[in-house]
C-alpha cells in the first residue's frame, strides 16, 4: 500500500516537472534563436520560428523576447521590434490580459512592460488596465505606460497607493534600462510622494553627488519614509550630515532604527567624530567595534 502511494506520488511529480522542464528548454531555444537574429541574422531576412499557435507557445515566445530585451540595448532593439511585429506579440498579449484575471492578467502586462513597446500599445494597456481593482494589475499597467512613453511622470504621480520598495525598484530598473537621461532634480523637489521617492531612488542608483543639496532639503523638511530614505542615500553619497535638525530627528527615532542608521553611516565611511555628534553612547560604542573589525575599510 505504501509502495503504491509512493509510486503514485513519484509519477505525479514526474508529470508535473516534465512539462516545466520541456518549457524551459523550449524557452531557451527561443532565446537562442532571437539572440542570433539580434546579433547577426537581422541582415539576412525575417525571423521565423515554427508556427506559434498555442497559448503556451505565445507565452514562451513573449518570455524569450522579454528576456533578451532586458539584456540587450542600442542596436539590438530594432530586431526585437521586428520579431514582436512579425508575431503580433503586443496585440496578442493585450488580448490575453483582457481575457484573464488577477495574477495571470498582471503577468501578461509584466511581460509587455519588459519589451520595447510602441507608444500606442503602452497607452492602450494603461487605458484598459490602469484602473483595475487588483493592485498588481494596476502596477504593471503603469509599467507598460512608462515603458512606451518617455513622459512617465503623470503615470507615476497618479498611482495609488504609494509604491512599495519592490515596485519602486522595478520602476527604476525600467527607467535605467535604455540609459536615457532622467532629470531627478524636479522629481526630488516634487510634493508627490511617489515622484519624490522615485527621484531619491534614481539619485541612489546613479550615485548623483550633485543632488546632495536637494537631499538635504528633504532631510530637513521631509517627513516619514521620504526623510528616512533621503538620509540613507545622503550617507551613501558621503554627503554632509551636520545640522541640528538631523541630530534631533535621529534622537527621536526608535532604537533599532538608530542602530541601523549608525551601521550604515559606518559602512559609508564616516569617522567616529561625525557619529559622536549624531548618536548616543550605545551606538557610538557599536560603531567603534565595527570600525575595529575587518568589516569596515578605512580609507
Amino acid at each position: 500500500m505504501i509502495l503504491f502511494l509512493l509510486s503514485t506520488l513519484f509519477g505525479s511529480l514526474i508529470l508535473l516537472l516534465l512539462p516545466r522542464r520541456q518549457r524551459a528548454v523550449r524557452r531557451a531555444e527561443y532565446v537562442r534563436r532571437i539572440s542570433i537574429y539580434v546579433s547577426v541574422g537581422y541582415e539576412f531576412g525575417t525571423f521565423t520560428l515554427r508556427n506559434i499557435a498555442s497559448p503556451t507557445d505565445l507565452v514562451l515566445l513573449a518570455e524569450a523576447v522579454a528576456y533578451v530585451s532586458e539584456r540587450v540595448r542600442g542596436t539590438g532593439v530594432k530586431p526585437l521590434r521586428e520579431v514582436m511585429e512579425h508575431y503580433a506579440l503586443e496585440r496578442r498579449l493585450v488580448d490575453r490580459a483582457s481575457r484573464r484575471r488577477g495574477v495571470e492578467r498582471a503577468y501578461a502586462l509584466a511581460l509587455l512592460a519588459r519589451m520595447p513597446l510602441s507608444r500606442a500599445t503602452s497607452e492602450r494597456a494603461y487605458a484598459l488596465f490602469g484602473e483595475d481593482d487588483d493592485r498588481r494589475v494596476r502596477f504593471y499597467a503603469l509599467l507598460c505606460g512608462v515603458a512606451g512613453d518617455r513622459d512617465f511622470v503623470h503615470y507615476v504621480a497618479a498611482f495609488r497607493p504609494r509604491f512599495t520598495r519592490y515596485e519602486m525598484a522595478e520602476v527604476v530598473a525600467l527607467l535605467c534600462r535604455e540609459v536615457c537621461a532622467v532629470a531627478y532634480t524636479p522629481l526630488v523637489r516634487s510634493h508627490n510622494y511617489n515622484l519624490c521617492m522615485l527621484g531619491i531612488s534614481l539619485v541612489r542608483r546613479m550615485d548623483a553627488v550633485e543632488a546632495e543639496r536637494e537631499l538635504r532639503r528633504v532631510v530637513v523638511e521631509g517627513t516619514g519614509c521620504l526623510r528616512l530614505e533621503a538620509v540613507y542615500v545622503l550617507a551613501s553619497l558621503r554627503g554632509n550630515l551636520s545640522g541640528v535638525a538631523l541630530r534631533r530627528w535621529i534622537y527621536h527615532r526608535p532604537r533599532s532604527e538608530r542602530r541601523s542608521l549608525c551601521r550604515h553611516f559606518v559602512r559609508s565611511g564616516y569617522s567616529i567624530h561625525t557619529l559622536r555628534a549624531l548618536f548616543g553612547a550605545e551606538e557610538c560604542n557599536e560603531a567603534e567595534r565595527m570600525l575595529n573589525t575587518y568589516k569596515c575599510r578605512i580609507a
Partner: peptide, 15 residues
Amino acid sequence: SLCMRALLEGLLYDC
C-alpha cells in the same frame, strides 16, 4: 541559467 547560456551563445554566433 539555461536562458543566459542560450543568450550568450546566440550573441556570439558566427564570429
